[in-house]
């Protein structure tokens, strides 16, 4: 019998027993070159908040580092629970702790929370309005690892769940503000997480996060881009490019996907004759785009044209993230081109 010989990997040589972790594919940054960033805004905000609130506990299904919960683990080791790779248990034991008066913040990847633990979140947490905060990394297309890790339909799934508040924040400053805001909201929350070195974008616009509120970040007379999550960053960048070409783009940021700020959305869309574009890091099915479309139809507001920028209804390819964002139309360049194309017709 032939046996393969174990070859010691090169990075274990030179006296170091510590493997050198290269996880760039998993945690690929969405920050552009030279863009200001902040490290682990979620983990730092939660650790700070927990100094003031001893009811906060942190729980994860073996993904502390990749959800920035390791910062909380270091600050509050007595209130951190490693639940193992068991997402159903993660949600249910959080439900049990919430029933006993604690406020669990549970983290995993968005694919696991949505696809694997849906039934458990729905009936054990949402139906009984338990105060559990579910914070999930790798929303939409934020990893190049392919369909197993790309939560392209999490918003569609969770929008159908009664009682659940859903957030899709844009940048580090928004995540920092959202953490205390959703802690103060008594009830279940699902927040899409940008982790690692997260871009700082909205501070430049003097933005203040308010739970349940859409905010006009910039105004413009030619088109209104309604966006959430990292697509607000892309929309703002695209708006600057469009400006150079004489196109005046407004950007309405919608960080709270549910409950949706229908009043602000309808009011903005009523303001005369603008192309309405909804941009989201999610499949075009069942996310912000269709939520806005339904809202406008119900309100009887019909813009001259309505378009969606989002992921196609298919399982996406694996690869380098910038390439994929170009391929699927989420990059600044592709957003700019799309808006220009629609306006020229």
């Amino acid at each position: 019998m032939r046996r393969s010989k174990y070859i010691r990997p090169a990075h274990l040589e030179n006296g170091s027993d510590k493997p050198r972790l290269t996880t760039s594919a998993m945690i690929a940054s969405i920050a552009g070159p030279d863009q200001p960033t902040k490290p682990a805004p979620f983990g730092n905000a939660l650790a700070a908040l927990a100094h003031k609130d001893d009811g906060i506990v942190g729980m994860t299904a073996d993904l502390a580092k990749y959800t920035d919960l390791h910062v909380f683990r270091s600050a509050h080791p007595d209130r951190f629970y490693q639940m193992g790779m068991a997402e159903q248990l993660l949600m249910m034991s959080a439900a049990g702790m919430a029933r006993e008066g604690f406020q669990p913040w549970v983290t995993t990847y968005a694919v696991f929370a949505s696809r694997r633990a849906y039934d458990f979140i729905c009936l054990a947490i949402a139906e009984v309005m338990l105060d559990v905060k579910i914070v999930c990394a790798l929303p939409g297309l934020t990893t190049g690892y392919g369909p197993s890790h790309q939560a392209t339909e999490d918003l569609a799934m969770f929008r159908g769940m009664p009682n659940l508040t859903i957030l899709d924040p844009c940048d580090a400053s928004e995540i920092e503000q959202a953490v205390p805001a959703i802690a103060a909201h008594k009830g279940p929350v699902y927040m899409r997480l940008l982790r690692g070195n997260v871009p700082l974008v909205l501070d430049e616009y003097g933005y203040k996060f308010e739970l349940g509120k859409a905010k006009l970040i910039r105004d413009g007379k030619d088109t209104l881009i309604i966006s959430s999550g990292l697509m607000t960053m892309r929309a703002l960048e695209a708006a600057k490019h469009l400006q150079k070409d004489g196109v005046d783009a407004a950007v309405l940021h919608v960080p709270t996907i549910k409950p949706l700020d229908e009043g602000t959305i309808v009011a903005e869309c009523r303001k005369g004759g603008r192309l309405v574009v909804v941009a989201e890091n999610h499949t075009v099915i069942g996310g912000l785009g269709e939520a806005v479309a339904g809202t406008l139809l119900r309100a009887g507001v019909l813009p001259p044209a309505f378009r969606q920028i989002g992921l196609p209804d298919e399982f996406l390819e694996a690869g380098a993230l910038p390439t994929l964002h170009d391929q699927y139309g989420l990059s600044t360049l592709k957003v700019t081109e799309a808006v220009k194309g629609w306006l020229s017709k």
């Binding site: 249910m92 034991s93 049990g96 029933r99």
Partner: peptide, 21 residues
């Protein structure tokens, strides 16, 4: 104490309650 019906829900919630204690 807890909503049940979908099977496999009670024990993991009870683990959370016991851990809370």
């Amino acid at each position: 104490e807890t909503n049940t019906g979908p099977l496999g829900h009670g024990l993991p919630v009870a683990v959370g309650m016991a851990k809370a204690a």
